[in-house]
Nucleic acid binder design. Structure first.
Lengths: 213, 213
DNA sequence: TAGATTGTTAATCGATTAACAATC
DNA sequence: TAGATTGTTAATCGATTAACAATC
């Protein structure tokens, strides 16, 4: 719900991170102002749609000028909740877990990796990106002490279901699932699945038979 | 376009990999038949929608019985083009590149990683998952020799734009972009962006203010 | 003022879902 | 046959986009 008390379409929320990402790159290039037209060209999204999306939340632009990059970043961060810090945990200290833990963007958007868990005793105690790898058996303790609500699942598939259950049982409410296991969760838990194979298969459809996108 | 010569909604194609993934898990559990109702419960997708999605491509079910798992897998693989082998390359031999190259699902769906590229001379010559790491300067040669049309971009952000350009210039037509860099590509190149931060930000919206999904 | 671009409407387009006849 | 579930329709719901007045 927004200030007009209207339900926001999913598509709108899905596009906001894309706008934000684009705006942050523009900011890095010292661009101060951007029109919906330009933002549209950069993100591949229709300019009218960008304006439509934004006015769900307020009038952030200046007619005849465009949007101030800095202001729009603040507004979108505020809408998404990315203006606050969020403690997260990563399950799995393999390549994937390490890649995610090292991701610059997390820090830039206020996500703080509080712990990385693994059940491999050899890895426990080592560090990834200055974060110590903890034993999976300490999951419960850490989640409760740090009041963690967001978890990233980056284990091998075999371990995924058990870890997901542990996260949910301890009160985690958002799970980013990077395994190909299907996670069954109660309605108040948000599970977001991300799988390179699904992404590839999706694009493959449009590729293999030269269907237009 | 399908056999009825009607345009297939994007949403349908997006859901097919989810069905496929679910079906393959069912097959592993030796389930032979599944109803749209059960598939719906497992994937979180409305049963009517599953049936609707599938008949865009043909009548794959048996009234009163459901869908034969094995048959439906074949059909969906055929639709997506996942019944053939596809050579791919991965750019970036860091944690992310390694994680993707090691991903079981790739092999299961016919994707063969032909080469992993990196510009770090120390990594070149080593192996990940039995695939030798090649020097980025050999990209052109490999892509042309192996007629690679699919590339996965898993480099640090700084290197992404240059690598993307190289891929496109040499004829790659599908790019899975795992960096947060925006890639500008001609219309006949399909770029699919996947970024853990965008995924987190999206879920964050529904989480932070207890908005219903 | 002239040019540019937002905010906003309204028309179009596309997606979802309930319902049920067909049929296994 | 009775029960189950698909295939299919049609109504509803939601998303996209062109167009343009408002206004910087």
């Amino acid at each position: 719900m927004n200030k007009f008390n209207k339900k926001i379409p999913y598509g709108v929320i899905e596009r906001l991170p894309a706008y934000l990402n684009c705006l942050m790159q523009l900011k890095k290039e010292s661009v101060t102002t951007v029109s919906s037209k330009r933002l549209g060209r950069l993100t591949g999204i229709n300019a009218a749609q960008i304006r439509r999306d934004l006015i769900y939340f307020g009038k952030f632009g200046i007619r005849g000028v465009g949007y101030e990059v800095h202001t729009l970043i603040k507004k979108i961060q505020d809408i998404l909740g990315a203006d606050k810090f969020h403690n997260i945990v990563v399950i799995g200290a393999g390549n994937l877990g390490a890649a995610i833990s090292n991701h610059d963007g997390l820090k830039n958007h206020g996500f703080i990796v509080k712990a990385i868990f693994d059940n491999n005793k050899e890895k426990v105690g080592r560090e990834i990106n200055d974060i110590e790898i903890s034993d999976l058996s300490d999951l419960k303790k850490v989640i409760n002490e740090e009041k963690i609500k967001i978890g990233i699942l980056a284990t091998p598939s075999e371990a995924a279901r058990k870890s997901a259950k542990a996260l949910i049982d301890e009160g985690v409410r958002v799970i980013l699932n990077y395994t190909s296991i299907i996670i069954e969760a109660p309605k108040d838990v948000i599970v977001y699945n991300s799988d390179p194979v699904s992404d590839l298969l999706y694009t493959l459809y449009y590729f293999t038979s030269k269907k237009s996108m």
